[in-house]
Design a protein around this nucleic acid. Structure first.
Lengths: 131, 131
DNA sequence: ATACAGTACTATGTAATGCAAGGTACCTAT
DNA sequence: ATAGGTACCTTGCATTACATAGTACTGTAT
């Protein structure tokens, strides 16, 4: 049997091609994921935003202010971290963040999630990389 | 020196706590990332959507129709995959997807990105896991 | 004093994507 | 005809990364 009209998709065969941007995908790859390394860093010892940025950068995870501050507010709102104000020798005071008990539990779960995801991807690569 | 008024943040100290949901983070972790395993699967051999879903499920990557179909459209729009209609013994015809030359190049880049991300996270975990 | 640079935190708007939910279309068997 | 299975598509919502602009505090040079 032959199909003459096949859904409406035939009508959009003249898709205007778009330019693919790897950086966008890399950015999207970080969505939600970032909570994990940030919690890791704060969990190690009390820290404040600019220092977190430095540590992320050192770990090759480029994050900017506009991403980190809302993320910290979110973690605070969910009770995963807390902070105390601390005066600085030069410049305005800092919000020193620490991970709460709930935060540590979530951190454990996120580590599990990450390991699971990592294992899945490794499996897929091994299975399909002969192309 | 002591600070009496510290930005406007003092005014919102009574944040209403919200419930944190790990599943949401796991869902966000997949953002953008999904293109990678889907390209891997299609790259191995021509496939169609329901089969891709099965393979992802087998790899412990739970994805649903409402996520996969728009993703495939996107990959097509960017010229990373293409498809041909293929009749099925029972049921409607299938869109059999294959990876284009451009798609293979992107696939290589995504694999690099993933390895880099993986290495960063592993480094962070090793560095901070003594908490 | 005043201006300026540096540090720290905040707020707004945009784009991208995962997902739930509902829908259309084709095929076979009853 | 009708029902059930298969395959594909669409709409609307929630979330989050990021660019950009802004506020506030401190020390230093003019």
């Amino acid at each position: 049997m032959h199909y003459i009209v096949l859904y409406d998709t035939l009508l959009v065969m003249t898709d205007t091609a778009q330019i693919y941007n790897v950086e966008n995908t890399q950015s999207q790859m970080r969505k939600g994921f970032l909570e994990f390394p940030v919690l890791l860093i704060i969990g190690a010892k009390p820290t404040y935003a600019p220092d977190i940025l430095k540590q992320l950068k050192k770990a090759n995870l480029l994050v900017v202010e506009g991403t980190l501050y809302p993320l910290l507010s979110r973690l605070k709102r969910y009770g995963l971290v807390q902070y105390v104000w601390q005066e600085s020798t030069g410049g305005p005071p800092r919000k020193m963040y620490t991970v709460t008990k709930e935060g540590k539990e979530v951190l454990t779960q996120l580590e599990e999630s990450w390991k699971s995801l990592d294992a899945s991807v490794k499996g897929l690569i091994k299975h399909y990389e002969k192309n």
